[in-house]
Nucleic acid binder design. Structure first.
Lengths: 128, 128
DNA sequence: TCTATATTTTGATAATTGTTGAATTGTTGT
DNA sequence: ACAACAATTCAACAATTATCAAAATATAGA
């Protein structure tokens, strides 16, 4: 992950509404949430939400998919791990100073689902 | 670490000059660097640097101390660990989904020094 | 105390950002 | 094709941010 990417990820997350959105999606797990549902949960205007979703998407932190007329957004856990990894990695700059930096976040696909739901996305594994 | 603090830390780090400053200080180790030295290394005007150092300080990411007529700034590794910890911690929201999230960065006091330098600050240990 | 050095504060300016109502695009079901 | 729904894009505005030159503050040494 390059500095430019880290910078835009940090910029995206440094805004309260966006941090809320991101954490909501992180907690929602790989399935994510429809834009409308996010707007309702966080009490944000559709236009405002859309603006922030775009920012988060451009920062690579979330991903969009369509399901019927709804657009679902979900957190990109790989990117998230990359960001944490970058910060952790660089907190130990000096090679003469070995430390343990092992942030690994790999939710299983069904993590946020009620029992019995279907789910065919599986791609997320540890990346650090 | 509260959301408010995370937010201001992220805001502080989401600006290129400040990210550069912070990483420079992280690499400099617990001793830190004089403001003037930072300004020279990063080619930033004193006024601009001072502005950013204030932001980073208010965000709790760096600490100031005086040494002669110079003001030395150094990274607050505890706070840094707290931030990474917060992000890592919340990347696994669902309790039914146990993962390994253990970012730990604890530089030894002499990490960035040339052999033979003195150093009496020792307080930094793992905090996560 | 006077002078030089190190850094911060001030004031002004240009650029970026967050927000909203209104209009637009895309999708579904009839 | 049409009406209803979901979300985005547009245009405009207020607020915040980054930057620098110049003035002010603090420390050290002669």
């Amino acid at each position: 992950m390059e500095k430019k990417d880290v910078l835009s990820a940090l910029a995206a997350l440094s805004q309260e509404t966006r941090l809320d959105i991101f954490r909501l999606l992180v907690q929602a797990g790989p399935d994510g949430r429809a834009a409308g549902a996010i707007a309702e949960t966080l009490a944000v205007t559709p236009a405002t939400l859309s603006f922030h979703l775009t920012q988060l998407t451009h920062a690579g932190l979330i991903v969009q998919r369509r399901e019927g007329r709804s657009l679902f957004y979900s957190a990109d856990f790989d990117r998230m791990n990359g960001l944490v990894g970058f910060l952790a990695e660089n907190c130990c700059g000096c090679p003469a100073n070995p430390v343990t930096c092992v942030p690994v976040c790999a939710p299983s696909p069904k993590a946020a689902n009620a029992p019995g739901e279907t789910n065919d996305r599986t791609a997320l594994e540890a990346s650090v």
